[in-house]
């Protein structure tokens, strides 16, 4: 059984269709990159998978369970975690506190009004484990706002990993990064566990070809094609609408 199955998903704002009959499957451990020109509906699709916006029609199945109408908080329980296109970390908190907040809904007691968060050893131990896995221990105590943008993007991924996802949605994780930071981010994504499935939106084709097992090309909300990187780069229609003649 596929990890994620999307069937004939549709979303429109008035007459503007941002998702049109999208059908996709994501396998366990697959690194799936979504590309397409600006306005193709890539982020809208990710938002529908994350539950931030509701699809007008169609279905989303996670491990065979219909999650089409599940709210975002319930999707985490099904194993879907995400990052956002714009940095949404809590700037006033430390790296440790940001990651710990990510674990909190799963292992903490958010409705316990009197249990001090600092005294929750289990939560703190799990947070250290994630920071160690993502090699962020050395900045644990630093306020997020004081770190470089590149570091912040990595912390954003680490915070998403705190939810122990089966499927990680990465919305342009390298956007705004310098070439060196981009390479660091690629290296970082490559170190993620092999059994973790990833759907990633990306514009930088160098990044795409380094990470993707399969690529889907979105064009005006529709899936133009899905295939292996070689198939996609060799497709005439894809070259015409997105990649250009240079690839």
């Amino acid at each position: 059984m596929s990890l994620l199955r999307i069937e004939r998903l549709n979303k429109a704002y008035g007459s503007l269709a941002v998702t049109r009959d999208v059908t996709l499957t994501i396998e366990h451990g697959e690194r799936h990159v979504i590309i397409g020109p600006n306005g193709a509906g890539k982020t809208s699709l990710i938002n529908q998978l994350g539950g931030q916006i509701r699809a007008d029609s169609g279905s989303i199945f996670m491990n065979g369970t219909d999650i089409t109408h599940a709210p975002p908080e319930a999707r985490l329980k099904h194993g879907i975690c995400r990052t956002f296109q714009k940095n949404t970390l809590f700037q006033g908190l430390s790296v440790f506190e940001n990651v710990r907040l990510g674990i909190g809904s799963r292992y903490g007691q958010p409705f316990n009004l009197f249990a001090r968060i600092d005294g929750n050893d289990d939560l703190n131990r799990r947070t250290w484990a994630i920071l160690a896995r993502t090699e962020l221990e050395h900045v644990a105590g630093q306020r997020v706002a004081s770190l470089s943008y590149g570091d912040q993007r990595r912390i954003e991924v680490a915070a998403a990993l705190a939810g122990e996802p089966k499927l990680l949605l990465l919305d342009e994780p390298t956007s705004g990064l310098s070439p060196a930071e981009t390479q660091q981010m690629i290296g970082f994504i490559r170190t993620l566990p092999d059994d973790l499935s990833i759907i990633m939106i990306e514009h930088d084709m160098e990044v795409v070809f380094q990470i993707a097992h399969r690529i889907s090309v979105l064009y005006y909300g529709e899936v133009l094609m899905t295939g292996a990187p070689d198939e996609v780069s060799g497709n005439e229609r894809v070259r015409e609408v997105y990649l250009g003649a240079g690839i």
Binding site: G92, F96, E97, N124, R125, E137, A140, G141
Partner: peptide, 14 residues
């Protein structure tokens, strides 16, 4: 800092 450490560093800590 080690994984076994449980004392949380806080950005608000003076």
């Amino acid at each position: 800092m080690s994984v076994s450490q449980t004392t949380p560093p806080s950005a608000a800590q003076s």
